[in-house]
Amino acid sequence: MILYFSGTGNSAYVAKRIGKMINDEVVHLFEKIKDNDFSPLQSKRPWVIVVPTYAWRIPRIVEYWLKNTPLQGNQDIYFVMTCGGSIGNAGKYIEKLCQNIKMNNRGCMEIIMPENYIAMFSTPTKEEASKIIDRAEKVIDLAAVCIKNGQSFKHPNVSFNDKISSSVINKLFYPLFVHAKKFYVLDDCISCGKCANVCPLHNIQLSNGKPVWGNQCTHCMACISRCPKEAIEYGKHSKGLPRYTCENVKKLEE
């Protein structure tokens, strides 16, 4: 069974591509995380977790869900992480997680996809995004073949900077940067409520038809990226930047 979490579609695309190649069930964790649903899941086939990279590790909300949700049946588990640049030393912390949840870690695969973290980095144009995804296809295929053949992913080379990024910087990143204080809405807002609907943590409420952010933000960028009117900004950084969502997901489903 393939379980994925995705704010802007990168991990959704990778999960569904792998699912088609190995003919396995694909489940979005959005509703389960949103509803605090920790009911056991059952699979006779290996588990595949597809997630974005948050500060060079898997998202904490996904890690919390995995620690609290029994994955029954097959005890092998693969991790596939999408990123804009690098997953750092995420594999070390995945190994610790697998020991914690008593699963057999079959490794972690890095797949570089278009940058979606508009709060800090520049997002690509449609043309740039398309080229990046084209380059990622071979790596997605490789991940699928390994899983289908029961092969573990190869251990990536880890640099000193990778180790620092996934340890020291990750610990500082969440309290210093992962908050919703800089989100605000423009007059272009049409009060459609989509931002609230796509938030995995019930962190957005509508007040007088306008979104108000709470204190549980995980920086998935779903609200700002999926707003149909591009009426949400993040401080000054997001101004003028294209809103990125993975259009290939729709093409895959056609």
Results as ranks from 00 to 15, higher is better:
residue 95 E to L: 01
residue 179 H to E: 11
residue 30 F to P: 03
residue 6 S to G: 00
residue 66 L to N: 08
residue 228 P to W: 13
residue 97 L to A: 14
residue 201 L to A: 08
residue 166 S to D: 11
residue 58 I to R: 02
residue 32 K to R: 13
residue 118 I to E: 08
residue 161 N to G: 09
residue 251 K to C: 09
residue 98 C to L: 08
residue 237 H to P: 05
residue 110 E to G: 05
residue 53 T to K: 00
residue 153 F to R: 12
residue 87 I to H: 09
residue 48 V to I: 10
residue 121 F to Q: 11
residue 250 K to W: 15
residue 41 L to C: 00
residue 119 A to S: 05
residue 218 T to I: 13
residue 47 W to C: 00
residue 39 S to F: 01
residue 194 K to W: 06
residue 195 C to K: 06
residue 235 G to I: 10
residue 108 C to V: 11
residue 239 K to R: 09
residue 108 C to S: 09
residue 225 S to H: 02
residue 181 K to N: 01
residue 57 R to Y: 15
residue 143 A to R: 06
residue 74 N to I: 04
residue 153 F to N: 02
residue 150 G to F: 02
residue 195 C to H: 02
residue 205 Q to R: 14
residue 122 S to D: 13
residue 212 V to P: 06
residue 153 F to G: 05
residue 86 S to Y: 15
residue 6 S to E: 03
residue 182 K to S: 07
residue 243 R to V: 06
residue 189 C to K: 02
residue 14 V to G: 12
residue 161 N to S: 12
residue 235 G to D: 07
residue 99 Q to R: 05
residue 99 Q to D: 14
residue 159 S to V: 13
residue 234 Y to F: 13
residue 112 I to T: 10
residue 143 A to Q: 02
residue 171 K to N: 14
residue 249 V to F: 14
residue 210 K to M: 12
residue 189 C to G: 02
residue 137 E to W: 09
residue 77 I to R: 01
residue 143 A to F: 12
residue 149 N to H: 08
residue 135 R to D: 11
residue 34 K to A: 05
residue 22 I to Y: 13
residue 128 E to Q: 00
residue 222 A to S: 10
residue 225 S to E: 11
residue 183 F to C: 03
residue 127 E to Q: 04
residue 105 N to K: 06
residue 120 M to N: 06
residue 199 C to V: 00
residue 37 D to T: 03
residue 134 D to F: 03
residue 197 N to F: 10
residue 195 C to S: 04
residue 235 G to Q: 04
residue 150 G to V: 07
residue 189 C to I: 04
residue 13 Y to N: 03
residue 193 G to N: 01
residue 133 I to C: 09
residue 214 G to W: 14
residue 197 N to I: 07
residue 146 C to V: 10
residue 247 E to D: 12
residue 34 K to I: 00
residue 85 G to F: 13
residue 75 Q to G: 00
residue 26 V to W: 15
residue 143 A to I: 09
residue 166 S to N: 04
residue 202 H to Q: 10
residue 218 T to A: 05
residue 182 K to Y: 09
residue 250 K to V: 07
residue 110 E to Y: 14
residue 205 Q to D: 10
residue 168 V to E: 14
residue 22 I to M: 10
residue 163 K to M: 15
residue 48 V to K: 04
residue 104 N to T: 12
residue 206 L to Y: 15
residue 149 N to L: 06
